[in-house]
Computed example of a mutant assay.
Amino acid sequence: MITVYHAKNTRSMRVLWVLEELGVKAEIKSLPFPPSKLQPDYLAINPTGTVPALVDGSVQLTESMAICEYLAAKHGPSLLVGPDDPARSEFVQWLWYGESTLMTPLSRMATVTRLGRKGADIDAVLDDARGNAVVRLAALEQRLEGRDFLVAGRLTLADISAGYPLHLVGLFGMDHLLGPRSTAYRERLRSRPAYQRAISVD
């Protein structure tokens, strides 16, 4: 049995979403956030104390997109774009866009907000992060012209990668930064039954 360690509104949401899309059963162990402080015995599973973590027999993984790729390759390649597919290079580009390009400013905002500090320096960091998010979301808006999904004309891991930072945009009250295509795209993702089941896990 696959075991996934999860905390609500974290990157582990991606893993639960992939499991739901593939119809794969797993034991979900929900942790308080941040688990590194509130669940110290979890450090034996993942020494960084972050979520997600996956244990599948002898396989242990702790990077959300690595877990998603592992699950898709093992249980359902429909979420992947194969090496011989003409869309492969675009798939790889947008797969990592969600985790690196979009997540970078949002992670910075989450960290600063969680610390709860005030002051001009903090405001400057937040303003810079918002500015970066605007530019990066504009690239997503451009990509979605004439497309329902990012690559290959169907849902892939690239969409699941991007779907999580778009979830954070809503949590941070920044929906006004989304263009009309990005807004409609996020609603398409949110309307998927697999997404709804994943996001409902506490």
Results as ranks from 00 to 15, higher is better:
137 L>E: 00
175 D>I: 03
137 L>A: 02
3 T>N: 02
159 D>H: 06
84 D>R: 14
25 K>R: 15
6 H>D: 08
5 Y>A: 02
84 D>E: 15
157 L>W: 00
47 P>I: 02
189 L>N: 07
119 G>E: 10
107 S>T: 11
32 P>W: 14
70 Y>F: 11
164 Y>N: 07
117 R>H: 13
134 V>E: 10
201 V>P: 04
195 Y>N: 04
174 M>A: 09
167 H>A: 01
138 A>W: 01
147 R>Q: 15
56 D>V: 10
47 P>W: 05
93 Q>P: 00
146 G>A: 08
133 A>W: 02
76 G>W: 06
38 L>G: 09
148 D>A: 13
107 S>W: 06
183 T>P: 00
141 E>C: 09
77 P>Y: 04
199 I>T: 05
164 Y>W: 11
9 N>E: 13
87 A>D: 15
92 V>E: 03
178 L>M: 13
118 K>D: 15
174 M>G: 05
53 A>T: 07
8 K>I: 14
24 V>F: 03
90 E>P: 07
83 P>V: 15
85 D>P: 10
149 F>Y: 15
154 R>D: 14
116 G>V: 13
173 G>Y: 04
168 L>D: 01
163 G>L: 01
85 D>Y: 09
184 A>N: 03
202 D>K: 08
186 R>F: 15
48 T>V: 12
29 K>N: 12
138 A>H: 07
99 E>Y: 05
15 V>F: 03
117 R>F: 10
132 N>A: 12
99 E>M: 07
108 R>K: 12
23 G>Y: 11
163 G>Y: 00
160 I>M: 07
189 L>H: 08
168 L>Y: 07
1 M>H: 11
38 L>D: 13
48 T>M: 14
8 K>Q: 13
195 Y>K: 04
80 L>D: 01
63 E>L: 09
53 A>I: 04
22 L>N: 05
166 L>C: 08
135 V>C: 07
191 S>K: 13
56 D>P: 08
130 R>S: 03
129 A>Q: 02
29 K>Y: 10
106 L>W: 01
21 E>K: 06
119 G>T: 08
61 L>W: 01
121 D>N: 09
108 R>L: 10
98 G>R: 03
184 A>H: 05
36 S>E: 11
44 A>Y: 04
34 P>L: 11
98 G>N: 07
19 L>V: 12
53 A>W: 01
94 W>Y: 12
